[in-house]
Amino acid sequence: MSTRGKISGNTPNPFASRRGLNQFNNRLFTLLVWVVGICTVLFICGLLFLILQKGLPKLEWSFLSGLPSEIEEGGGIGPTLFNSIYVLVISLVISIPLGMAAGIYLAEFAPDNKFIAFVRICVEGLASVPSIIFGLFGIAIFVEAFQIGLTILGGAVSLAFLNLPVLTRVTEEAIRAVPIEMKNASFALGGTHLQTILRVLIPVSLNSIITGICLVAGRAFGESAVIILTAGVTTSGEMWDFSLFSPGETLAVHLWYVQSEAIVPDATEIAEKAAAVLVFVVLLINVIFRVPLWLNARKTRV
């Protein structure tokens, strides 16, 4: 007993040095994550502040509701702002049901074979395709095949095509992330597959799905390449034009046009105010889509 204790007392513990090294690596990694995270947040906040502080103080109602001007200074963004929201709503009405349905099918009903694996690869590839490709597709469909010209309808449907792959993949991954025990518990209680999807899978994965919707909504609202090719760089000249066959210049396209092509004397000021409105609306869209999650979380706590 004494010899064994003596050996154990004199022999260095090989795990002690390894434990100390692991603790050092853990602290170093934690510090690195904190530094990178804080720098990223500061960069984002600084970028938002730089854009908003130049444009927001100069905003007036006449600018938000006025008509764009080609030559004279003092033009507004009324029709372009309306077109941006109008095109976004139409594209989301089309893409959200189709994207969620496709994601649910791939997660719950699609067989596990090579063809479905190929379909997933295609969806992932389409999600990373440059937006100008969807613009060219929209030209081929709406301008050349249907010959309806550059319209709000063409821009909205093309944006829906742009959103579909992302929504499909986000929905599929969100549904797959739901614990299998919750799904089995629903079946054990007598729920059908449809009831399980509507009352268990979708509510549990709603946070991830809405995050995906926020991403595609913000991307669609600020998209310019697709709109230029399918909806044009002009408006109908009316503030509230609900016609789907009117030209559909959006705020992002107007911002690009003012900075690159317009000859108005106050082009820089218009661009600064338009950029501030664009960023503010994107932030507002994210807040609006988060409201159902906050209400659901509040009900859950109660």
Rank of each mutant, 00 (worst) to 15 (best):
Val170Pro: 06
Gly154Asn: 05
Asn113Gln: 00
Glu223Arg: 12
Ala145Glu: 10
Ser205Arg: 12
Phe142Met: 08
Gly75Cys: 13
Phe187Gln: 02
Val157Trp: 12
Ser128Arg: 00
Lys273Asn: 02
Ala274Arg: 00
Thr11Ser: 07
Glu73Leu: 12
Arg298Ile: 14
Leu48Arg: 00
Val302Met: 03
Phe49Ala: 11
Val166Tyr: 13
Leu255Gln: 01
Cys45Arg: 09
Val291Lys: 06
Thr268Gln: 10
Asn207Val: 09
Gly125Ala: 04
Val277Glu: 06
Ala185Trp: 01
Thr171Ile: 07
Ala217Glu: 03
Gly20Gln: 09
Ser131Met: 15
Pro111Leu: 05
Ala275Met: 07
Thr30Asn: 03
Leu251Thr: 07
Leu159Gly: 05
Ile263Pro: 00
Leu164Ala: 09
Val157Met: 06
Leu136Val: 15
Asp266Thr: 07
Leu42Val: 15
Leu136Ser: 06
Ile96Gln: 02
Trp34Cys: 11
Asn22Cys: 08
Leu189Asp: 10
Phe245Asn: 10
Gly37Ala: 12
Leu201Asp: 02
Glu172His: 00
Ala107His: 02
Ala177Leu: 01
Glu73Ala: 15
Leu106Met: 04
Val200Met: 10
Asn296Tyr: 03
Phe142Lys: 03
Ser95Leu: 14
Cys214Trp: 00
Val33Trp: 02
Val291Met: 09
Arg19Pro: 00
Asn184Cys: 03
Thr250Ile: 07
Val287Met: 13
Phe245Thr: 06
Val33Glu: 02
Gln53Glu: 08
Pro12Gly: 01
Thr230Ser: 10
Ala276Met: 12
Arg18Leu: 15
Leu136Cys: 04
Ser246Thr: 14
Thr40Val: 13
Ile227Gln: 07
Lys114Glu: 06
Gly99Phe: 01
Thr211Gly: 13
Pro97Arg: 09
Ile270Phe: 01
Ile210Met: 11
Val258Leu: 12
Pro68Val: 11
Gly125Arg: 04
Asp241Phe: 14
Pro79Ala: 02
Ile85Glu: 11
Glu249Asn: 06
Ile227Cys: 03
Gly76Trp: 09
Ser62Trp: 07
Asn13Thr: 03
Gly75Val: 12
Ile210Val: 14
Val129Pro: 09
Leu28Gly: 06
Arg176Thr: 05
Val166Leu: 13
Phe118Glu: 06
Val233Lys: 09
Met182Gly: 00
Phe146Lys: 01
Leu194Asn: 05
Glu70Phe: 15
Ile228Cys: 00
Gln259Lys: 14
Thr234Phe: 15
Ile141Lys: 00
Gln53Thr: 09
Ser243Trp: 11
Pro203Ser: 06
Asn83Arg: 09
Leu215Pro: 04
Cys45Tyr: 12
Ala220Ile: 03
Glu172Asn: 04
Thr234Val: 14
Phe24Val: 11
Asn163Gln: 11
Met239Arg: 15
Phe24Met: 12
Val226Cys: 08
Leu244Phe: 14
Leu201Val: 04
Ala267Glu: 05
Cys45Ser: 07
Thr235Pro: 13
Gly99Pro: 01
Ile197Cys: 08
Gly248Cys: 13
Ser243Phe: 03
Val279Asn: 03
Ala127Thr: 10
